[in-house]
Amino acid sequence: MTDADDTLHVRAIDAFIAATGASDPEQRATLLSRALAADVVFWGPLGRGVGREAVEDFITEVVQGHPSGPCRMVRTTGVDAPEEWARFGWCYEDAAGRPILSGTDMVHVTPAGDIDEIVVFAGPLK
Results as ranks from 00 to 15, higher is better:
Gly89Val: 03
Trp85Phe: 11
Gly47Met: 10
Val119Lys: 07
Ala4Ile: 11
Ile59His: 01
Asp39Leu: 04
Ile115Leu: 14
Asp6Ala: 14
Trp43Thr: 11
Leu125His: 03
Pro45Gln: 13
Tyr92Val: 14
Met106Ala: 08
Phe121Asn: 11
Met106Glu: 03
Gly69Leu: 08
Phe121Arg: 11
Ala81Glu: 04
Leu32Asn: 04
Leu125Trp: 03
Asp6Gln: 14
Pro99Arg: 14
Ser33His: 09
Ala122Val: 10
Asp24Ile: 00
Arg75Gly: 00
Phe42Asp: 14
Gly113Ser: 06
Glu53Cys: 04
Gly123Val: 13
Ala4Gln: 09
Val107Phe: 01
Ile118His: 05
Ala19Lys: 06
Thr77Glu: 10
Pro25Lys: 01
Phe58Ser: 11
Thr76Ala: 10
Thr20Ala: 06
Gly49Pro: 04
Glu93Met: 05
Leu32Pro: 07
Ile17Asn: 08
Thr2Arg: 14
Glu56His: 07
Met73Asn: 08
Ser102Trp: 03
Leu32Cys: 06
Gly47Phe: 10
Asp116Gly: 04
Ala54Val: 05
Val74Phe: 02
Gly69Phe: 00
Val109Lys: 12
Pro124Thr: 14
Arg75Pro: 03
Ile100Lys: 13
Ala19Met: 03
Pro67Thr: 06
Cys91Val: 15
Leu8Ala: 15
Thr2Phe: 02
Ala12Cys: 06
Ala112Trp: 01
Trp85Met: 15
Asp105Thr: 04
Thr30Ser: 05
Pro25Gln: 01
Ala22Tyr: 00
Thr2Val: 09
Gly47Trp: 13
Ile59Asp: 01
Met73His: 05
Gly47Ser: 10
Ala122Arg: 13
Ala18Tyr: 00
Asp105His: 03
Gly65Asn: 07
Ala95Ile: 08
Gly49Asp: 10
Glu26Pro: 00
Ala96Tyr: 01
Ala35Asn: 09
Asp57Arg: 15
Gly113Asp: 05
Phe121Asp: 02
Gly51Ala: 12
Arg34Glu: 09
Ala96Ile: 01
Thr30His: 04
Leu32Thr: 02
Val41Ile: 15
Phe121Val: 12
Arg75Leu: 03
Ala29Ile: 01
Leu46Trp: 09
Asp24Gln: 01
Leu32Lys: 04
Asp80Val: 15
Glu93Gly: 02
Glu26Asp: 01
Pro111Glu: 06
Val79Phe: 09
Ser33Cys: 06
Thr76Cys: 07
Thr20Asp: 00
Asp116Trp: 02
Glu83Gln: 08
Arg52Gln: 11
Thr30Cys: 00
Arg98Gly: 06
Asp80Leu: 15
Gly78Thr: 12
Gly97Val: 03
Ala54Asp: 07
Val109Leu: 13
